[in-house]
Write a protein that binds this DNA or RNA. Structure first.
Lengths: 186, 186
DNA sequence: AATCTAATTCGATAATCATCGAATTAGATT
DNA sequence: AATCTAATTCGATGATTATCGAATTAGATT
């Protein structure tokens, strides 16, 4: 439902279901047998099996009276291996708003006109603010010190400090010998 | 708490915690940063991080004001790999009473003296009963047909059927040419 | 020492979920 | 067709837990 990977882990994050998977790793069992082995009611086991089925870990095969469940070995291995690649964690994190923190910090420090009340003293908040400010510069374009100061003045009167911090935190670079500034790639 | 593996999966079976792991896979974050990124309160994030710490997935390193968390890459890989080996599922299943089902079935079919009311017609229940009955024979020992019948008579008058089923289900074997019987290994 | 700040803990609340018993369904055996 | 049996579904209940706000703690900066 919410997320394939979350559901997969949720399915395994229960003692009864883990035992079921463990038993099915040995051989196939009917619902009735599992219920007796686990000291649970058939309805409860049925509920667990439906969750395991949802994530593709087990599957059912009718056999005479019984519904025999067996482990989907390949699915287990495939999902587990994907984990190692770490690819899916990125997927989960992709839904995250990576700018949210910066915007929050900047919102705390800026007036309605977008200028800074003060330059943050704390490292993390200073960095967030700088990442915000540097967006005022076009990537790839070169700026003279005068142009830089003019842009920075929109944020704070102490343009020298801002310039120094931007360079110090490697968000901007200066040509050797004191030439132009440009925004570094990120 | 209850089971190392269950707790591990439970820790990952939550959307917020999966996102945290995904973010930490990229770089280390403070609680405050994670809270802003996930749109959660610091107290909530702290709670999640403590759960992830419990199972060894992340660890904290104080740094100035902040408590910076980072992913325990090796722990993640190690645990995930153990999964593939399937060794731990067996561990979970080991706690299970493997005889419970057989005992339940036999209890349904036996009188107080241990004899069978009827010989179960259903395959699974017949097998459970046979596994129960065969325990009356010592492993490795040889029995004449007369001895076998005497023992089986304790369970049901139709000793011939029981004998046939025991052999048919390979729980007992008979010497070629119609000789002695013995219990097979299991 | 006094003061900040982030992190944690605690208590409360609402949502999720494992488990059960009862009722129903789906299939097979007679 | 009638009957039996295992499985599933449904509704209820109790336990677990994600989340929050408030209060506290632990550390660093001044």
């Amino acid at each position: 439902m919410e997320n394939e990977l979350v559901d997969f882990y949720k399915a395994l994050g229960d003692a009864s279901r883990l035992k079921i998977v463990g038993l099915l790793a040995g051989r196939a069992y009917s619902v009735e047998e599992l219920a007796a082995l686990l000291h649970l009611r058939p309805s409860t086991v049925s509920h667990h099996l439906s969750k395991l089925t949802e994530v593709g870990l087990v599957s059912a095969h009718p056999e005479s009276y019984y519904n025999v469940y067996h482990l989907e070995q390949k699915a287990l291995e495939a999902k587990t291996r994907r984990l190692l690649s770490r690819a899916d964690f990125g997927e989960a994190a992709a839904a995250v708003d990576l700018d949210a923190y910066d915007r929050k910090v900047v919102a705390d420090y800026t007036r309605r006109d977008g200028s800074l009340k003060t330059i943050p003293a704390q490292q993390k908040k200073l960095e967030a603010t700088l990442r915000y400010i540097v967006k005022a510069f076009e990537p790839g374009k070169r700026y003279s010190e005068r142009q830089v100061n003019k842009i920075l003045a929109r944020f704070h009167a102490d343009t020298a400090s801002l310039r120094r911090e931007l360079v110090g935190h490697k968000l901007m670079k200066r040509a050797v010998g004191g030439g132009d500034y440009w925004r570094t790639e990120s």
